[in-house]
Design a protein around this nucleic acid. Structure first.
Lengths: 251, 251
DNA sequence: GTCACCCTTCACGAGATCGTGAAGGGTGAC
DNA sequence: GTCACCCTTCACGATCTCGTGAAGGGTGAC
């Protein structure tokens, strides 16, 4: 029988701290093991940020063979991280539990912060800070923007269950950007979506709302589109005002 | 050359989503791989919650052989997750970057929530909800209590850099519990420490402050110590008032 | 019915990971 | 100096993981 001490109390017959049978520990290491593969992690990040995907859409996005992805998805299903719904001959995968988005976000944030800043060929570029993704802003700015709007209650956080983001209880943060969500002309587009940032591996704001926000920032002279590229240049005014408007964004 | 599309923009010659060379992706999967082992994860959780430990203290706590732990710590050092400081013949390990605590907390929270609730021999017990750890409260209540005090700005979050927790800018949440931190008689004890909860794998409040809080809750009739065991019984009054006092705590 | 297509599973070989046991370096006590 | 002690490293065998290729089941188009 084991004998150990825990903060002065003796705990007899209790399994050790590292007993792989400990339920929370086993569950945590199993989860970490699922995240420790580029394909599985990217698939989960895509599903968590952008909502359900069919198998074939994932195959195209990840550029891997179907059996290879299928094996990984089978693992993720067995681990209870994703769920499948079959529609005809298509298989629609989605995140099983919304809470996973928090884990993925924490992981990506740490991974981004922990990067040795000036790697060969990987120094911080203007592109890294802000660039367009279709017609909305991506990069550090796009990620910070979505985080800001979610934190202020203007939008609900992406949790991978749905394709679109719902408006939150308090539109003040959107109003502060000069946007009235009720007056948004969405056309046939989804009003607000999350879109996985390719560099930072965190969701940024897309959809009609994302496009409108970018237009406003350009109108206000805070950002400038660079002709022929996808780079968004932060103007002098933007360098002054953006960190005030979006507190988690710097430079 | 690769050809892919990203939200309508064609991106030519860009490495795929799952390219293991992508810096943030590589960093994230490497981190997850380090967390995917019971010994490494527990060591990191201990260091993040309770601050620096010597190698021998970790060996005793984890109940593993020295070479086995040494191999794991060498990995963690190579991955940049922990740092060593040599003091005489002792090696003092600590978390390298405070942000890791957030990742570990997110992982443990998801792992705890994702548990199939009624496992054989692992149903939710009174012990699970609240029990003593030395002279302070652990279990779900102890964890929620520390989280609440940190969120309200009464304490700083444990980040593994220090052995004790500093007081935060706003003591109101402590005052609401009937405690004046300035009047705390610490004796030779540390005023406030974090202590890793064995079941939930999240830090709870220890030290003189933790003991004082538990005393107050018992005085107020919200908790009752069970004679001869470490169980803390939530009284009828506690069931009514505790969720109001500590919003993240239920039942 | 026939076919193309989407998805899943299986088995095998290459590769990586992990724990043990043994050995070695450096420190402090005596 | 001698010794006990703390920590680290190394090498090897057992074990697990992963990707490929092939095969098979089910669906919808024609």
């Amino acid at each position: 029988m084991l004998q150990a001490t825990l903060n002065g109390d003796s705990v007899t017959g209790v399994a050790g701290w590292t007993d792989p049978e400990e339920p929370v520990l086993a569950s945590a290491t199993a989860l970490a093991a699922e995240l420790a593969d580029p394909i599985r992690l990217t698939a989960l990040q895509l599903l968590a940020a952008e909502g359900p995907h069919t198998m074939s859409r994932l195959v195209a996005a990840l550029e891997v063979s179907a059996p290879r992805l299928g094996n990984h998805l089978a693992r993720l299903r067995a681990a209870g991280l994703v769920e499948v719904e079959h529609a005809g001959r298509h298989a629609i995968y989605r995140i099983a539990r919304p809470g996973l988005a928090d884990v993925l976000a924490a992981l990506s944030r740490y991974a981004g912060d922990a990067l040795p800043t000036a790697r060969p060929g990987r120094e911080v570029t203007a592109d890294d800070i802000a660039h367009t993704c279709y017609d909305h802003a991506a990069g550090r700015l796009g990620v910070a923007l979505l985080g800001h709007l979610v934190e202020r209650g203007a939008l609900t956080a992406p949790d991978g269950r749905d394709e679109e983001l719902a408006l939150g209880p308090d539109p003040a943060a959107l109003a502060a950007l000069g946007i009235d969500p009720a007056a948004l002309d969405t056309g046939r587009r989804k009003p607000a979506t999350a879109c996985l940032d390719r560099i930072h591996r965190l969701p940024h704001l897309g959809g009609a709302l994302g496009a409108r926000v970018l237009d406003r920032l350009v109108e206000q002279g805070l950002l400038a589109r660079e002709e022929g590229t996808r780079v968004l240049v932060v103007t002098a005014a933007g360098r002054r005002d953006l960190p005030r408007m979006v507190p988690t964004f710097s430079v």
